[in-house]
């Protein structure tokens, strides 16, 4: 087990270096001179050179990358925004809780929908519930989150007035107009629903298939032959095995879902990482974009690591091989 963890940690470091190199190269090789944008239209050639020197943009890209790494590792700093001069660390620190709220709540909601629906449709295939859930799956997979977001905010926000259309309320620190867990959840409900439906649909289908397959396994028959009551067979023998692939998928999909969060944040004007990155792109604010990419990468790596360790813990065959 220890060796497995060490191996996984080493892989995480390799992955981190690879991803940062690639993002660094992509962002600093785009055919645009950030110094021009920073400096403004009135700048002379000399001014631009001075700005470039100030930000270290005149150095070769590998040197810039090493400096970036040094900053990141030694000072734990992502640098300073070109556009606002704010520390990128602070920008990320402000935006991350919003995205985290959206993603964590969304994942909880999607699992709350997918697990019971998937299991129930697997237990009674072709029943009314099964057919209804298959319709939900089809709709959920077909509908784009942006479209869903607009429809939701139009009907539930504008027409019916059940939920607020925009804005984010902090969970812990109440600001002037809103704050606290209730307001937080109330403002996030539509974004969560928008975010969760696609994945809920995918997971209903996956869980249904897994459970149905596992129900026909020989060891499930063995459990029944032992005289185990149905709920114990389901919990201890079917679900435990059927959920193994779901755990792996969840680890991979949360990374994917961060991408999906960009749409949801844009539609509902949530000041999260996605929306911040999009605005930063508009102003050529490369340190901010890059800071967000680096931060998201670290999150995904850490998350995958946790999921892999969790998987090794629940599946003994992985642990020992």
């Amino acid at each position: 087990m220890i060796r497995y963890i060490i191996r996984r940690l080493l892989w995480a470091v390799v992955l981190f270096v690879a991803v940062t190199v690639v993002t660094y190269i992509i962002f600093f090789i785009v055919p645009a001179n950030p110094a021009l944008g920073l400096c403004g239209k009135a700048c002379t050639q000399d001014d631009v050179k001075r700005v470039q020197a100030y930000w270290g943009l005149d150095k070769p890209v590998p040197v810039q990358y090493l400096k970036f790494l040094e900053r990141l590792v030694v000072h734990q700093s992502l640098g300073r925004s070109f556009a606002t001069r704010r520390e990128v660390n602070d920008i990320v620190k402000d935006a991350a809780p919003v995205t985290a709220s959206l993603v964590v709540g969304g994942v909880v909601l999607w699992m709350l929908i997918a697990v019971p629906l998937g299991i129930l449709s697997a237990i009674r295939p072709r029943s009314l519930l099964d057919r209804a859930s298959m319709v939900f799956v089809l709709v959920g997979i077909s509908a784009h989150p942006v479209w869903l977001g607009l429809i939701f905010s139009f009907f539930f926000g504008y027409k019916l007035g059940w939920f607020p259309i925009t804005n984010y309320c902090d969970f812990i620190n109440p600001s002037t107009d809103c704050g606290g867990p209730v307001q937080w959840a109330y403002h996030l409900f539509l974004p969560w629903a928008t975010f969760a439906i696609l994945f809920a649909a995918l997971y209903v289908r996956m869980i249904r298939a897994n459970v149905m397959e596992t129900m026909n396994e020989d060891y499930v028959r063995t459990a029944r032959a032992k005289g185990a009551p149905e709920h114990q067979v389901m919990r201890s023998h079917i679900l435990r095995n059927a959920m193994l692939p779901v755990v792996t998928m969840l680890g991979m999909d949360i990374g994917l879902a961060l991408g999906g969060a960009v749409f949801t944040e844009t539609v509902y004007a949530l000041p999260g990482l996605g929306k911040t990155a999009i605005s930063a792109l508009d102003t050529f604010d490369l340190p901010t974009v890059q800071g967000i990419v680096v931060f998201s990468t670290i999150c995904i790596i850490v998350f995958n690591l946790i999921v892999d360790l969790l998987y090794a813990w629940i599946d003994p065959r992985i642990r020992l091989s």
Binding site: D218, Y219, R221, N241, L244
Partner: peptide
């Protein structure tokens, strides 16, 4: 029936490779 199954009547199956639950000791 459950009380009889596994206690008074027990069964072993054809394929021992798949008849034991892989995630339990």
């Amino acid at each position: 029936f459950r009380d009889i199954r596994g206690s008074e009547i027990a069964m072993i199956f054809q394929d021992p490779m798949t008849s034991l639950n892989p995630v339990h000791k």
